[in-house]
Amino acid sequence: MAVIRTEKICKVYNPDTIPVHALKDVSIQVEKGEFTSLVGPSGSGKTTLLNMLGALDMPSSGKSFIGDVEVTKLSDKERINFRLHNIGFVFQHYNLIPVFTARENVSFIMMLQGVAQKELLERADELLESVGLGDRKDARPHELSGGQQQRVAVARALASKPRFILADEPTANLDTKAAMNLLDIMEKMNEEQKVTFVFSTHDQRVIKRARRVVTLVDGAVHSDKTTTPDNTVKE
């Protein structure tokens, strides 16, 4: 079963005044273990689609499924709880909690889930080790570089053991070295732990590493290319 599936979703902003059609009949499916990029020019609808996939926003029409749950039918409260247990988020601006240390930032989501203190601390430490920040776990966000903060954000996204991770322009604010380092970590997790990643990006460094690239133009899927392990491209 697909991890994410959308059926002809449309999103119209300002339907009663000046309608803006952000998404037009978008139907895509993301399987477990994919490393997918949503690409397209500014205003093409990639962030809007990412918000739909992450149950942050609701489509004007169409259906969206995560596993076998139709998220478009969930209430706001149910969607928040659903996100907590099923989706990991990595944001462009890192968005760590500034008053928490790296370890507390990673632990926080597990605290919300009600994970026992001992277990969550062990897992937070493991995750920080896995993103190469084992020695910076007591640092607060302002004491970390942009790349380090984004790695903490990845660790946080993984902490809740989500079905998949959505990353909105994760490398947009990083220099090349930090971006490549972050991509290495995410790629390794994808390959070794079969963690599903979906990015929205126009960063060529990410697009080159993605094994599936879905291109959006004017709110519609323009192309959907998958690179197989032997580097052949399928459309």
Partner: peptide, 10 residues
């Protein structure tokens, strides 16, 4: 917004 996104209840 981030807290609500990642699953902190309102």
């Amino acid at each position: 917004g981030m807290l609500i996104s990642i699953g902190m209840s309102r």
